[in-house]
Each structure stands twice: as C-alpha cells, then as structure tokens.
Design a protein around this nucleic acid. Structure first.
Ligand SMILES: [Mn+2]
Ligand SMILES: [Mn+2]
Ligand SMILES: [Zn+2]
Ligand SMILES: [Zn+2]
Lengths: 139, 139
DNA sequence: CAATAGTTTAGAATTGCTCTAAACTACTTG
DNA sequence: CAAGTAGTTTAGAGCAATTCTAAACTATTG
C-alpha cells in the first residue's frame, strides 16, 4: 500500500465529513493541499502543481474545488492582492505577512498579534472577521 | 463666478503642487474627488459619476489618473476585494470597515485602532504598511 | 446494476484592468 | 503669441483571472 493511497484514504474521510462527494479530482486536490504543512495557494499555482504531479484535473475544477472547500470550512480565502485570489489551508485564527515582491504569504499566529480599539460596526452590521495584513518589502 | 469654477481653481493649484499638468480631465476628476468629504471610489464608480455630471473623460484616463494621483500622494489604494480596486481620498493613517454586502468602505480613524505584537519581518524585509480590514455583514 | 443527482470539463464569456499608437494639448521658447 | 515639443488622452485591442454553459461523465442509492 503506497503513501499516496493512504493520503487518499484520509482525504476521502475528510471530504465525507464535510458532506462533499469524494470524486477523484477532489480527493487528489485534498491530498495535495492537506498532505503536509499549512500552505497558501492560488488556483493557478495549485493547477500547475497538480499537473506536474500527473493529476489530470481541469482548471475549472480547481476553481470549483477551491470554492467548495472554502464553503465547507476546509480552506479560507485571503485577500491581499487585487489581481489574484489566495487560499489558505490554515483556517484557524491567524494573520499574514504579505511579501509584495514575490506575492508570498507567511502566517503570523493569531495569539501573537492583537488588534485593539475596533469600533462598534454601523447599525445592523456585525463583525465577520478582522484581517491584518503586514505588507513587507525588501529593506 | 460659479462654484465649479472655484473648485477647479483649487484643483489646478493642487495638481501644480504635486507636479502634474492640470489638464481638463485631471482638473475635473480632482474637483469631483476632493470637493467634499473623504471618499472611496473604484475606477468604474468614478467614471460613472463623471459621466453623470456630463464630464467627458474616457475610462482609460480615469484609470491613468487614479494611478497618477496615487503616485503623487493625493490618493491611496485600499485592497479589500479580490475583484476590484478601491482608491481612497484619505491618505492619512487609518483603517477600514468593509461592508461585504454592498462593497462599501467606512473609515476607522488611525488613532482609534491599534495593532500590537507584529513580529519582526523575515530577514531582509521591512514593514511597508499594516492594514486592518474589519469585514462586516448584515447582523 | 439501473436511475438519478451531483460533478467535471472544454471552451466561450465576462470582468477589471493595461497597452498601443495616433490624435491632441499644455507649456516652453523665440 | 506663433511654432515646437513633451506630455496627455483615447478608442480599441489585448490580457489575466475568473466564471459560465451545457454536454459528457460518475458516485451513490435503491
Ligand atoms: Mn470578491
Ligand atoms: Mn481580473
Ligand atoms: Zn495563512
Ligand atoms: Zn479610507
């Protein structure tokens, strides 16, 4: 029994838990995304990576799957760049460094950073999330 | 002497100060942008507004002008939505509520909100800016 | 095993934005 | 105050990221 196969087993279980049919494409993408450490991907970068690994999945499916995983709570979206959407396998409370030169994201643990003094939202609105982006550049 | 004409006078002065030729298009857009209170616009929304006012300016010029004003320090860009770029007439230190349902921005004064515990950036990098976006939704 | 509901896909479409290069105009200089 | 020229505007083409469409496919259920 290969390593990929065991990874796929875990992915299938995970997909069932959140109510998504474990299709070949979803299982393969979940295996790639959740295999090792937390990571940040774009649709295009994940499509590239999957293609490199020999997985045959269309770009449209990568987009669909990223959104489905996000709705299911397996991923979260990070908005740091007006040109490109990022998806994050770390769904816990945390913030980001954004390396503007290379377009890379680095996690900042949620308990390390704190935002104080957020005013009460305008009437009828509730805070959904507070995002902190620390934009960094070559010194 | 009409009100618009006085507005234009101020706009011309302002453009000269930052080294931009006061062309008809730049003067008109500056008048619209800096007439009253601080505001947040998208290229499309400003183009719409100018058109409504009978100002004849192409969309390409609106894009060019927004970028030129930003480089000149008259505007700043705000990244809150992966699909659309926002420009802000308030260039001072402040943060934002983002109303996800309507795509609107509301300023939070910079002295009201504070971010503590930002870690030292990775080697060779320096903090350019710390952005806080408070995403709010219908309660 | 059907039947069916959900999924994938190629390719077209859409969106927000940038580029090109030709026409135009603000500023300089004689 | 005429050129001259450097900078500006613009229509339209082009582009990159993303979404849509609708026909082919597949996981699940009975
Ligand atoms: Mn969006
Ligand atoms: Mn886009
Ligand atoms: Zn992250
Ligand atoms: Zn603002």
């Amino acid at each position: 029994m290969g390593k990929a196969m065991r990874e796929n087993g875990k992915a299938i279980q995970r997909l069932r838990e959140v109510g998504l049919r474990p299709t070949r494409q979803r299982v393969e993408l979940a295996s790639v995304l959740f295999k090792g450490e937390d990571r940040h991907v774009t649709a295009e970068s994940l499509y590239e990576e999957a293609s490199q690994l020999g997985l045959r999945i269309s770009l449209a499916t990568v987009y669909n799957t990223l959104h489905q995983f996000t709705h299911a709570g397996l991923l979260r979206q990070v908005i740091v760049d007006a040109a490109r959407g990022y998806f994050d396998t770390n769904t816990g409370d945390h913030q980001h460094f954004f390396l503007e030169d290379e377009g890379a994201l680095i996690d900042i643990p949620g308990d390390q950073i704190s935002v104080a003094g957020v005013p009460t939202p305008p009437n009828g609105l509730a805070v959904d999330r507070v995002d902190v982006v620390v934009r960094v550049k070559r010194a």
